[in-house]
């Protein structure tokens, strides 16, 4: 069963009198343990799609299921619970809570879980250690570098043991090298813990690390593949789902 299953997603925005079709009939399913990149030019709908998957925006048409549970029709509180239990978010702008220390930031989503304060602290520290920041737990976000902030954000996303981690351009605000480090870290966690990652990016070097690529263009998926097979000129623009599945299987056998 896929962790994420989107069927026929449609999202329109009214921009003055014109309607922007941010997503037109997007279907995508993501399996457990995937390390998936969503790519495409600016305005192609990457953020919109990630928002749908993350249950922070609702589609005008189509369905999103997380972990087999359809999210259509859920109340705002129920959606908040789905996010809190199953989804981790990593943002382009890090979005740490400035008044909280690193470890408190990581603990924040855990407040909604049934844990003693010790368990909560332990899990937060463990998550910080996973991103190799065990030593800066007491620092406030403004005392950390950009790369460190993003690592704290990753720890925060991981602390709740989510089914999926969503990252919208997680490296866009970092220098190239730091960005790659962040991606390597995500990938390592993906390998070690089997956490599913879905991220969007503009950076070809970052795309290279993805195991699966989904290309969006003007609100539609044009390509599904891997970086090496993905041809930016569009030679494989109509790669069929069938081939896609075969590639997926190949990857599954690789490790």
């Amino acid at each position: 069963m896929p962790v994420v299953d989107c069927q026929g997603l449609v999202r329109d925005y009214a921009l003055g009198k014109t309607i922007v079709h941010a997503l037109r009939n997007v279907s995508l399913s993501v399996d457990e343990g995937d390390f998936l990149a969503i790519v495409g030019s600016s305005g192609s709908g990457k953020t919109t799609l990630l928002n749908m998957i993350g249950c922070i925006d609702t589609p005008d048409g189509g369905t999103v299921s997380i972990d087999g549970q359809p999210t259509g029709g859920l109340s705002s509180d129920d959606l908040a619970d789905v996010r809190s239990q199953k989804i981790g978010f990593i943002f382009q702008t890090f979005n740490l809570i400035p008044v909280l220390s690193a470890v408190e930031n990581v603990e924040y989503p855990l407040l909604r879980h049934r844990l003693s304060s010790k368990e909560r602290r332990d899990r937060a520290l463990h998550a910080l250690e996973m991103v190799e920041l065990g030593h800066v737990g007491k620092n406030k976000p403004n005392e950390l570098s950009g790369g460190q902030r993003q690592r704290v954000a990753i720890a925060r996303a991981l602390a709740v043991n989510p089914r999926i981690v969503l990252a919208d351009e997680p490296t866009a605000n970092l220098d190239h090298k730091t960005g790659l480090n962040i991606l390597h870290l995500m990938k390592r966690i993906n390998k070690q813990a089997g956490t599913t990652f879905i991220f969007s990016t503009h950076d070809p070097k970052v795309m290279e690390l993805a195991e699966r690529l989904v290309e969006l263009e003007d609100g539609e998926i044009t390509t599904v593949g891997t970086y090496r097979r993905w041809d930016p000129t569009g030679a494989l623009a109509h790669l069929s789902h069938h081939i896609d599945d075969i590639i997926d299987n190949m990857f599954e056998h690789e490790y």
Partner: peptide
């Protein structure tokens, strides 16, 4: 937006 995204209820 951030705290609601990471699971805080309204």
């Amino acid at each position: 937006g951030t705290v609601m995204a990471i699971g805080s209820r309204r």
